[in-house]
Nucleic acid binder design. Structure first.
Length: 263
DNA sequence: AGTACCACCTGACGGC
DNA sequence: TGCCGTCAGGTGGTAC
């Protein structure tokens, strides 16, 4: 599932399974998910070629073909990749099915069809065209401060704004704010410098440990909020009750005791 | 110009 | 059991 850590895990999965094999057939089960291209065009670019390497920017995965094109995957809220040989292992909501010459298949499954499948010639140009910010794993502290300083929005909205910083969504913004002890409804511009630096460190630490844990909440450190949201709703740091609030249309989970006020 | 909100799509869950 | 409303880890377009 598809914030930065989930997409990074998908990238590692793709790299471990699907590179350097001839693509013999591409089936498009949901043509409406193709962005700015036809089924025919996608098949022409992929079939007979092979994936050579991949890159991730924010929540997007760019898969480099030998012919120089990139297959671009975005996972929406429900997308994932799966590699299998036995067709009984076919996932339930396949939108793209790629058959390799070794008899294995790579499926892109996306139940809610909120993801996207695209082609690109150049990653930097794609990022520029979509106006995506610097990747959250790559950004340095000064750019982070700049990205958050010029907005009237809440800090949670600003962290989730892909044009400021790419890769953070609803779940991980909550975790980052929780680890930094910052209230989600606090105005981004009202944070003092030490809070912003704390957020920066929390962002790096949360994202890298989530990737190490293969984005599986069951493996997360004991004091992480994610495994407790919607489950027992108990704060893993102070034992108090987790609260929720709507922040620009999304549900924020936070601990009012550990994360102070939004004033 | 910048921010908030709805639509897009499908399925799961709880209440009646 | 069945129907309905609500909600879900995202984002583009549109309305303020």
């Amino acid at each position: 599932m598809p914030e930065l850590p989930d997409v990074e895990v998908s990238k590692q999965y793709l790299d471990a399974t699907s590179l350097h094999q001839r693509i013999v057939e591409v089936e498009v089960l949901a043509p409406e998910m193709l962005k700015d291209m036809s089924v025919k065009e996608l098949k022409q670019v992929l079939e007979g070629d092979a994936f050579e390497s991949s890159r991730r920017h924010g929540k997007y995965l760019f898969i480099n073909l030998r012919n120089g094109h990139f297959l671009v995957l975005h996972f929406g809220m429900t997308g994932f990749l799966t590699y299998f040989k036995n067709m009984e292992k076919e996932p339930p909501h396949e939108r793209l099915l790629i058959a390799f010459s070794n008899g294995y298949h790579l499926a892109y499954d996306c139940q809610r069809k909120l993801g996207q499948v695209a082609l690109a010639e150049d990653v930097a140009a794609f990022v520029e065209e979509r106006k995506l910010g610097t990747d959250a794993m790559e950004i340095d502290v000064d750019s982070f401060k700049r990205a958050l300083s010029v907005t009237r929005a809440s800090i949670k909205s600003a962290l989730m704004d892909q044009k400021r910083i790419a890769g953070i969504g609803n779940i991980y913004s909550d975790e980052i704010l929780f680890q930094a002890g910052v209230h989600p409804q606090k105005k981004a511009s009202q944070l003092d410098e030490s809070s912003v630096e704390k957020l920066f460190r929390a962002m790096k630490e949360v994202l890298s440990s989530a990737v190490e844990c293969r984005a599986d909440p069951e493996r997360f450190p004991k004091d992480y909020l994610i495994p407790h949201r919607r489950v027992d709703k108990i704060c893993p740091k102070c034992g108090g009750d987790i609260e929720t609030a709507k922040v620009s249309g999304r549900t924020a989970y936070f601990c009012p005791n550990c994360q102070g006020s939004h004033q």
